[in-house]
Structures are given as structure tokens and as C-alpha cells.
Amino acid sequence: MAAACTRTLCKVGRSIWESPAARRPGTVSYLVGNVSSRGFRRAYGTGVYPSELLSSLRTGAGGRVLGCAVLLGGGLGLYHTVKFRVQQLLAEEETKVSGGGLKLTLYQYKTCPFCSKVRAFLDYHGLPYEIVEVNPVMRKEIKWSVYRKVPILMVDGDVVRLLKRFQNTGVSSPQIKQLNDSSVIISSIQTYLINKERSLSEILHCYPEMKSVNERGKEVTEYSNKYWVMLGETEITDIYPEKGMQKEEMKWRQWADDWLVHLISPNVYRTTGEALASFDYIVREGKFGTFEGFFAKYVGAAAMFLIAKRLKSRHNLQDDVRQDLYNAVNDWVAAIGKKRKFMGGDQPNLADLAVFGVLRVMEGLQAFDDMMDNTKVKYWYRRMERASLNHEGRQD
């Protein structure tokens, strides 16, 4: 609080010093006179002084008394003006500390389902963030990063401090944290919002990076425990009041990453017409130069139409890939059941946000319309839309 007061007084002093009035001769008398003028305007309900008052100030003992009164009134007016401004600035500082000034930066492709998952999580919790749209061809926006995929969430020193609003201690020095992998980002920030004793650095140690070579001979990076929210027993009971809820959440989060995501490309690039429509959307919403956009729209659409066929074979999908999408979505709705609004009960949990984020990237495309018309997902999806739009997970 002392530091906040000091910063606030400095701001007030600077604003007064830098004002045009402060640079003219007679600054003090100008400021006092200005404040006293405002005070008399409030008292008399007019913007001018009564002539009798002005003449009395020029002569006699009464003039001296009234002059002192004017100066006193002016001083009190100035005091209250400065006091009001100090309170206003302190309120702004408090707003930042309570969450209004979060500085999260998300590096993303808008149409990437993994990036959409992270946005769904941040939006639902009402966490402000800036977006840096990455050019998918050159990727120069993330050339500073060894990790060359999106999403990347950068958490600067202010956010590390501000997220500590749930804790009794602050952060001693600014930090910048890079969070990779959509599921790690979500699990670690969720842990940080709930756990009142551990720092972000400590939490990130719970998700160690592991490098390996996949069946195609390509080096891949994975993260241990990425579906775990690292909580104590008391917190687990509060967040997951029913037995098995946490394991259910983890199961369906992994299902979204390992199965649902792989149904998106084969469905949105199912035919040449759908592939062209999808790339028209990607170019329109993404960050492409003029030539890159033209190339991506036509050459990319043709390439992805062929790649979608390979993905269908790799993931053992049916000839009509829509049926796999329908089956997956209906399995999800059946798992929620008729008695729950969401997988998390009355409020969405991390599995709800993951599935919603993945499906959302198809909006505006034929695959999305077909899914909404031919499955039972519509009512759950619309509830999720409202929850995300209204930031229903925001913590006051």
C-alpha cells in the first residue's frame, strides 16, 4: 500500500507539473485561484463572482478576512481535488491487482484447435490476453523461441504478480515465463488460479519436458502429467466433490487431444469444395501476405485435400468421415448424460472447455453445420458458447 501511495502521489505531482498552467508564472496562485473558483461556482450555482464580493476583496479589514477565507477555501479545494485524484489512481492500481490488468500474450493460429482450446479456457475464466497471430509459412513471430509450435503463452512479471492475488505473498522480481503445449498451459494456469501456496515456477516443474522420436522418425516433444491439475487433498475435494470426477475430466481431455482433434482435418477437407472453403476461411482469418494467401488458398487446399485422405487412413477412419465425427460427438454427449448441463456439472470443467475449443474451429464450415444438424451436441454447445462469452468462470 505504501508503494502504491508513493506511485500515485508521483503521478499526481507529475500531472500537475506537466499541465500548461504549471509552466506559466504564478502557477501556485493560478492553481489555488482555479480551485477556489470552482468552489464558489458550486456554492453560487454560477460561473461568475458576484461584483460585491470582488470589490470587498480589494479594501478594508473585511477584505483581508474575505481574502483569507478565499485562500483557505482554495487550499481546501485543492486538497480535496488532489485527494480525489489520489483515490482515483489508487482504485486503478487496485483494479490491476484484482485482475483487470493481466498481461498474457498468446501466440497462435486462429484456426488451430489447440490454440482454440487455450482461448476457450482464458475466455471462460475472464483472463485478459493479447493475441499475436503467427504467420504459418514464415513463423517469424516466434523465431525467438526454440519451441516452434503454437500455442505459446507468455506470462510476464506483472501477471506472475497479479495471479498472486490469490496468495498472501508477492513476487520479489519480474519474471517472464513461456508456457508451451495447450494442455500444459491450461493445467498449469488452472493450478495457479486455485493453489494458494505454490508459485508458477514450482508448478511448471510438475510438467517436465520429454523428447522422443515417433514412429515416423521425427523428434517430438511431450510433457508428463499434462492433464493433471496439481492440487492438495482439500482443494481436490472442493473442485471435484464427487468421486471419479477428476479422472473423468482427465480422460476426456486426453480424448479431445488424441481422437477428436484428428477428426477435424479429414472433415473440413473432405471434398475439394470443402477444402477450398476451409482455406478461404483460413486465409481470411489468418496472417498471410497477398501472394501467400493466394498460394495457400489454392495450392494449400489441394494439398490438404490429399493429406486428409492420408489422415483418414492413418487414423482408421470410415470412408464417410462425417460418421466418425458424429459418433465421437454423440459419445461425448452420452458421457455427460441427461442430468448434467456440462461434464463438470452445473459449470464447465476443463474437459468441456477442451472439447468446445476443438469443435469451435469448424464454425462457418459445412462440417460444423452437418454436425449440429445430425448429432445431439447442439444444446451443450450453445450453453458452452454462453459460458465462454459471459466469462462465467471469472473469479472475483
Rank of each mutant, 00 (worst) to 15 (best):
L72S: 12
L72M: 10
L72N: 04
L72R: 02
L72F: 14
G74I: 02
G75C: 11
G75H: 07
G77F: 06
G77T: 01
G77L: 06
L78D: 07
L78P: 00
Y79I: 05
H80C: 08
T81I: 11
T81V: 07
T81D: 09
T81Y: 12
T81M: 11
V82M: 10
V82P: 04
K83C: 04
R85V: 10
R85D: 07
Q87C: 15
L89R: 04
L90Y: 09
E92K: 14
E93T: 07
E93R: 05
T95A: 15
T95D: 14
G101S: 12
G101Q: 08
G101W: 07
L102R: 13
L102S: 03
L102N: 09
K103H: 15
L106E: 09
Y107M: 03
Y107N: 04
Q108R: 14
Q108W: 01
Y109E: 09
K110F: 13
T111E: 14
C112K: 10
P113F: 10
P113R: 04
F114S: 03
F114P: 00
C115Q: 09
C115W: 01
S116C: 01
K117S: 00
K117T: 03
K117F: 03
V118F: 05
R119L: 00
A120K: 04
L122F: 04
G126D: 05
L127T: 01
P128G: 03
I131L: 13
E133M: 11
E133C: 08
P136Y: 05
P136D: 10
P136C: 02
V137A: 13
M138D: 14
M138G: 08
R139C: 15
R139G: 11
K140Y: 13
E141K: 08
E141N: 12
I142D: 09
I142Y: 12
K143E: 15
S145G: 05
S145Q: 08
Y147P: 05
Y147W: 12
Y147I: 11
K149G: 01
V150Q: 00
V150E: 09
P151M: 03
P151L: 08
I152K: 03
V155N: 06
G157L: 00
G157Y: 05
G157Q: 06
V159N: 15
V160N: 08
K164P: 06
K164D: 15
K164C: 13
K164G: 15
R165K: 11
F166R: 12
Q167D: 09
Q167G: 01
T169Q: 07
V171D: 12
S172H: 08
S172I: 07
P174N: 12
P174S: 09
K177V: 15
K177D: 07
K177I: 15
L179A: 03
D181R: 00
V184W: 00
V184C: 02
V184E: 06
V184Q: 02
V184N: 05
I185L: 08
I186M: 11
I186A: 04
S187R: 03
S187L: 02
S188V: 05
S188W: 02
S188A: 14
Q190L: 15
Q190C: 12
Q190M: 15
T191G: 04
Y192T: 13
Y192D: 07
Y192N: 12
L193I: 00
N195D: 14
N195G: 00
K196M: 03
K196G: 11
K196T: 10
E197Y: 10
S199V: 03
L200H: 05
S201P: 00
S201C: 04
S201Q: 12
S201K: 09
E202P: 01
E202T: 07
I203Q: 03
I203D: 00
